[in-house]
Amino acid sequence: MFEYLAKRLLYAVPICITVSALCFSLVYLAPGDPLSAVLPADASQEIIDDVKAQYGLDKPVYVQYALWLGRAVTGDLGTSIGSGRPVAEEIGQAIVNSLILAAFASVVGFTIGSALGMIAGYHSGSTTDKMVSAIAISGVSVPHYWLGIVLVVIFSVKLNWLPAMGAGAGGSQAWQWDWEHMRFMILPAITLAAIPTGIITRSVRALVADTLSKEFVTALRAKGLTERTIFVHVVKNSAPTALSVVGVQLGYLMAGSILVETVFSWPGTGLLLNTAIFQRDIPLLQGTILVLALFFVGLNLLVDALQPLLDPRISRS
């Protein structure tokens, strides 16, 4: 078990380095000059060179990367060009907000997805199964910014039940666990949950239907076990694969919420990315992508660590 985990951890190192190099260099492929956003249009060449040197942009790209990486491992991701605040600080606040949103969306997505998937898997081929599959496919296919706007139109504009944007009254960014703040969460969380709900429903349905068709389930019936006990067997057999699907979805919830956070002006990493892209705020962009990518790597590592606890064949074979 320890050896297995150490191996997984070791694999993660080159992935992290590649990821950091990719997100550093990708930014340079994008059109636009970060300095044009900061400097006045008529700035002299002298000032341009001076500011370039200040941000380290006069050095070759690989040197810039090495310097950036060196600072990044100590937690210093530079200073945001847009706000002038440290990037790490900006991301720290945003990631908390995104995590809260993602946590709510995943609780919604995973409970509904697993429940629907179980029902459809147990009744595979029936009308119920087809209805659930239709719901799952629409969850995956509906563009979620559109879904967000529709929900806003219904629940904020027409019914005036829930706020349309923000994470708290008066543009507050600090999260608190009370109803005043929770109200802001409901619409973005539901919108964000649509895709993972669909994907998890479909995966769990396939897994459960597949497990139920296995000979050992017939053998469990032949042992005289009740359907309830057999259900536990089915869950334990489906769990390892379901877990990896859930892990990937959790990562997407963190990173893939750009559109949803933008629609609802939710002050998370998605909105931060959006802002960084439009302001050509390169340090902020690089920092945010890096943190999100590392988050993915960390999640996969966590899934890898949990899987052998659920499936003995992974670590013991």
Binding site: E215, F216, A219, L220, K223, H233, K236, N237, P312
Partner: peptide, 15 residues
């Protein structure tokens, strides 16, 4: 009680 043809497929792999 019953004995099945494929012992490898008739026992629950995660128990």
């Amino acid at each position: 009680s019953m004995i099945f043809q494929e012992p490898g497929l008739s026992l629950d792999p995660v128990y």
